[in-house]
Write a protein that binds this DNA or RNA. Structure first.
Lengths: 189, 189
DNA sequence: CCAATTTGCCTAAGTGACTTAGGCAAATGC
DNA sequence: GCATTTGCCTAAGTCACTTAGGCAAATTGG
């Protein structure tokens, strides 16, 4: 009986792909075993549990998304940076719905603290550098931006914007313009 | 063997309560059977499936939330209406996390069309009456408001705002103020 | 290069949730 | 009071998760 060459990394990667293909909740230890043509129990040498698998997928997605956002932000400021951030977020969700869903999984406190989630928070704050907001307004703005981006992407993915004639892309651009105007009007206040 | 008096309505209500107590994903046909001290299979006379149960809970939550929002909006306009809407939404999520989660479940197209989700959309649009926005800006604004409220509440419930000293209530009020200012500045444009 | 050890995948077995089929008894209605 | 309907039951099959223990392949080190 030849070995399949399983590792936590390969399993995570396969799980990530599976999530985009069939949805995060269809990513199961059993489905993964089928994909590798291996018995389910064999995966437990590499994964602590089904929860462990999900967590690894979430961490992978957070990291990948943070990398993309960082690349998109490089060398940009002000509205450019705002749009780059939002677009990176939205594009990732559209290209990789399963990964995006995984990135929203609730992690326990210590795992979250060690995750790329921290980079996300830092980058959101970095966008605001161009707008010169004093504290605590800066924190308020970070929260509002996070809310808008996360909310918009979630609702759009859930199909919430597909029952009106108005193009979602237009609404997205209007939203980015509005946020920029809002932040500029708050600058230095 | 005395009868337990099960009905779809009683089961849905129990499921709703269970969702708030232990989380929506712990709401299972089996858990419900235990709560009524009845065998699992007995529930299948009243529910088509586990999915059916979840859908009923979602519809209940959507309806209840729409009622609350409608009550909060009555007689208000402009910023008052905006804040009432947002607060109704946020308060519901805080008081009833399980129901709020259920209200986010994705329903199939026809079920969604027959649900109170339609009322939600109408009420969001009603808020904007006071701001006198032309189309398509009104649609853009509806989408943005929905995104902010849904996003803020989701992130707050997920604990995303609890790692900074700044009070979440302050950020919420700042966000409402900002949205009001934004909409006013767009009026009639 | 062979022996000892470690590693990787296996079989076996138990848990818990979902679902269908078919039966008996309680409630209902004539 | 009897027939019918209704409500909950037992039985049985599916599928996912998880642990324990075993055998064989890979690795290591003499």
């Amino acid at each position: 009986m030849a070995r399949a060459g399983l590792t936590p990394e390969r399993l995570t990667l396969a799980g990530v792909e599976l999530a985009d293909e069939v949805g995060l909740d269809q990513v199961t230890v059993s489905a993964l075993a089928r994909r590798f043509d291996v018995k389910v129990a064999s995966l437990y040498s590499h994964l602590k549990s089904s929860q462990d698998l999900k967590t690894r997928i979430a961490l992978f997605a957070l990291e990948e998304l943070a990398d993309r956002v960082a690349a998109a932000l490089a060398g940009r400021a002000g509205k450019d940076a705002l749009a780059a951030f939002g677009n990176a977020y939205r594009d990732y969700a559209r290209e990789h719905p399963g990964r995006y869903a995984a990135a929203q999984l609730r992690l326990d406190t210590e795992t979250a603290a060690a995750s790329a989630g921290v980079r996300h928070a830092q980058m959101t704050r970095a966008i605001l550098r161009g707008y010169d907001l004093p504290e605590p307004d800066q924190t308020h703005a970070v929260r509002m931006l996070g809310s808008v981006f996360h909310g918009y992407v979630s609702l759009e993915m859930a199909g919430g914007f597909s029952h009106t004639a108005v193009d979602s892309q237009q609404s997205w651009e209007w939203t980015l313009d509005s946020l920029d105007a809002l932040l500029r009007s708050q600058a230095g206040s």
